[in-house]
Amino acid sequence: MSYLIGENLTGGYGGMDILNDLTISVDKGEIAVIVGPNGAGKSTAMKALLGMLDLREGQVLLDGKDITNLTPQARVGEGIAFVPQTHNVFTSMTVQENLEMGAFLRRDDIFETMEQIYELFPILKEKRKQAAGELSGGQRQQVAVGRAMMTRPSVLMLDEPTAGVSPIVMDELFDRIIEVKNTGVAVLMVEQNARQALDIADRGYVLVTGRNRFTDTGAALLADPEVRKSFLGG
């Protein structure tokens, strides 16, 4: 059984179902990627796992434990970290303070974790006294991921981490995300850049109108001619 599972998720906002019997799971040391056309419910699926959506049916399990009824904050406490697509750093605070805020719930020494993150994102160490708002887009995304990592999460969720960054920065970010995965974290991403994302994915979910359309390994999806034709532009 996978580490994080969202099973038969059905629900939406104000009585309108956006998700229909959707199932998504990810294991530790794995990258799972959710792709699909606009309006397929990709971000909504992630919100459902975070507890930011009213579910009519289905359940969310973390390490076998039912967390369906926990608030988003409580899920953070359980080890799920989330990087929103926008507004994902404290712009007026320094890089280091951003990381400290990520570790707000922790009462133990966070120095070691911070060093690990500086190792993972060397540029952040260099700029640690600078306000996050002054950094470039790619650097900001690193701060955002770093902040989320400060809780030492078992699950890291990223909502379109490469939106609006250049292809070079995107490659670098994906490299970093692979490194995060290698530390034994379960990584779940929503991505617009489907091809590149599936390239690094252990699992891929192709969503259409809130339903599972294709589910397979990233490589298999990339090889599937139907997926290529319909979702990857040939």
Binding site: Q73, F90, M101, F104
Partner: peptide, 22 residues
């Protein structure tokens, strides 16, 4: 202080502060 920083974080970005467990 930790609380002071939490206040600044909250003022800066409420949603993210909540996600950080503040």
């Amino acid at each position: 202080s930790r609380t002071g920083k939490a206040m600044r974080a909250f003022s800066d970005n409420e949603d993210l502060a909540l996600l950080s467990g503040i």
